[in-house]
């Protein structure tokens, strides 16, 4: 096992640990913080796959942006008695879900196990520059569409979360 193998194992263990903590912890705030571990491990995984730009974007968008959004969501909707109803999910339903998800996992494992592609150096030099060039030539229309999508989401989120006028006056 080479150094990269060891690094990969550590990253993988951290990612799975974060996911399991997300499933098992009781408080929602703890779950959100546990997810940071997973998001961050995935970013480290991208570095291992020589995708630095995607890794940094992952840290910026997920660990920085989405997690903070979630935390705000929790704080604005929560007061006390956090998970009073969390346990209402019957253990039978949990078991059934677990079994089906596990089946899915095992089936896809047998699909994935024989995959033995060889890693190739896809691009020598500055990945970031290459990504930028492709993004602004081949993928310019999807790129512009995403920018419109983000604008719409921004305005929509502001409008949805804004208080109604009568409500604010009360």
């Amino acid at each position: 096992m080479s150094s990269s193998g060891i690094v990969f194992s550590i990253i993988a263990i951290c990612a799975i640990l974060g996911g399991l903590m997300m499933i098992t912890l009781k408080k929602v705030m703890h779950m959100t913080v546990a997810m940071i571990l997973t998001y961050f491990s995935i970013a480290a995984l991208y570095v291992l796959l020589t995708a630095e730009f995607v890794a940094v974007a992952q840290v910026l968008v997920y660990s920085g942006g989405i997690t903070i959004l979630m935390v705000f969501g929790i704080m604005l909707t929560y007061h006390k008695a956090e998970n009073r109803d969390e346990e209402k999910v019957s253990s039978f339903r949990k078991l059934i879900t677990f079994l089906s998800v596990a089946t899915l996992g095992i089936v896809s494992y047998f699909l994935v196990a024989p995959v033995d592609f060889v890693a190739e150096e896809i691009f020598v030099g500055d990945h970031t520059k290459a990504i930028g060039e492709i993004l602004y030539t081949n993928y310019i229309i999807p790129f512009e569409l995403v920018s419109i999508l983000l604008l719409v989401a921004l305005i929509g989120a502001v409008l949805l979360a804004k208080k109604d006028k009568e409500e604010a006056n009360e």
């Binding site: 096992m1 080479s2 990269s4 193998g5 990969f8 993988a12 990612a15 799975i16 996911g19 399991l20 997300m22 499933i23 997973t38 995935i42 995984l45 291992l48 796959l49 020589t50 879900t97 677990f98 998800v101 596990a102 899915l104 996992g105 896809s108 494992y109 994935v112 196990a113 024989p114 995959v115 033995d116 592609f117 060889v118 890693a119």
Partner: peptide, 22 residues
């Protein structure tokens, strides 16, 4: 860095996907 087989990355993705689905 070619020592890690592709399937191990895919396996990790499967595990995370299953956790998320559950």
């Amino acid at each position: 860095m070619s020592s890690i087989p592709a399937s191990s990355f895919l396996l990790l993705a499967i595990i995370l996907f299953c956790i998320g689905l559950y």
